[in-house]
């Protein structure tokens, strides 16, 4: 116990300032001011891997580390789409995940924000041309913000989430 406490004390706080939204990432509609204000206070995210190579997942997981401190931005991951305000979707959508992705989207309450993460999610990427893939996420469900990169840096992913959350600039 003492060792644990000593470790916590010696490391201190390492959290960094979150990035500002970037309108260039927006590919869909912008949120209404009032909804943005409500969501800005506490955002729930559901992640869906629709066919990724699992590289993008590693950078999404990194958002939880003490540097990016997602929870410090009042953003957390939830276990059910019914509790989610925003879907974070990775990969090209593959045929075997098409129905599951559509079901998750249907179960998500309004405003149903969708952020496509990674080159594959944005354009189909390296994997989107595979015969059992359907290409970019927006081929299957509407996408509001697309974050390119293979995989994108965690700060870019966070920026994408914050862009989806902010009203149009």
């Amino acid at each position: 116990m003492l060792k644990t406490l000593r470790k916590i004390a010696s490391i201190g706080l390492v959290s960094e300032t979150p990035p500002v939204p970037d309108e260039l990432l927006r590919v869909g509609r912008a949120l209404d001011d009032r909804i943005a204000a409500v969501l800005g206070r506490a955002l729930c995210i559901r992640h869906v891997d629709a066919g990724s190579c699992n590289g993008c997942e590693l950078e999404i997981q990194a958002l939880g580390n003490p540097y990016y401190n997602l929870e410090g931005c009042n953003i957390r991951f939830v276990a059910s789409p019914r509790h989610a305000d925003l879907l974070l979707v990775t990969g090209p959508v593959v045929k075997n995940m098409e129905a599951a992705l559509q079901r998750v989207y249907a179960a998500t309450p309004a405003p149903k924000l969708v952020v496509a993460v990674g080159e594959c999610g944005c354009t189909g990427g390296a994997l989107g041309e595979c015969p059992a893939a359907l290409g970019r996420v927006s081929n299957v469900i509407p996408v509001d913000v697309a974050v390119p990169g293979c995989p994108p840096h965690p700060v870019r992913i966070l920026q994408g989430i914050l862009t989806a959350l902010s009203p149009a600039a």
Binding site: D49, G51, S52, C53, N54, G55, C56, E57, L58, G91, P92, V94, K95, N96, M97, A100, A126, L127, E129, C130, P131, A132, A133, P151
Partner: peptide, 29 residues
């Protein structure tokens, strides 16, 4: 099998000197 992409079929016909990029994405980790 949910994230089946058809990788093996995709490999066939690609320039052999470029296949390493797709190989890296079989399992990104």
């Amino acid at each position: 099998g949910y994230v089946h992409k058809g990788l093996e079929q995709r490999f066939s016909g690609l320039p052999i000197l470029q296949g390493h990029r797709l190989a890296a994405r079989v399992s990104g980790d």
